[in-house]
């Protein structure tokens, strides 16, 4: 289990329930979490202060999760880890996600415990 002190996570989801749930769960796991309600806010927050990991819901009005991910991968902090959240759909959605550069993908409805495991796993890999 990686040390979670001072590890910053940005969470973006327009659904307040999921946003608050993920923020709560990851905070309980010891991470410092900043939650925003849409893609534009996520992109602004990312540029202002790049976190260690970003959790993005794919389906958001305005800038979608894919859009924010695309922007991140084209920015100077392109190595930041990204986990995508999406409603249950066919595999091609997952393919697009990975093609655009996601590190992992969680499908809704999701198990909160599994989400934390995935986050831990990505951070262990990317932070060495």
């Amino acid at each position: 289990m990686p040390a979670t002190d001072g590890v910053r996570i940005l969470v973006a989801d327009d659904d307040a329930d999921i946003r608050d749930l993920v923020e709560f769960k990851l905070s309980q796991a010891g991470y410092t979490v900043h939650a925003v309600p849409d893609g534009m806010a996520a992109w602004d927050a990312f540029r202002a202060d790049p976190p260690d990991l970003v959790v993005l819901d794919v389906m958001m009005p305005g800038l979608s999760g894919f859009d924010v991910l695309r922007n991140i991968r084209e920015s100077e902090h392109r190595e930041v880890a990204v986990l995508l959240l999406s409603a249950k759909s066919r595999d091609s959605d997952v393919d697009t996600g990975f093609a655009v550069g996601a590190d992992d993908y969680v499908i809704k409805p999701f198990s909160p415990r599994e989400l934390v495991h995935r986050v831990n796993g990505i951070l262990a890999r990317t932070r060495g």
Binding site: D38, G39, M40, W43, G62, L63, S64, D67, R70, N71
Partner: peptide, 8 residues
């Protein structure tokens, strides 16, 4: 509009 998406 940002990167081809309507944001506001």
């Amino acid at each position: 509009v940002v990167a081809g998406r309507l944001v506001d």
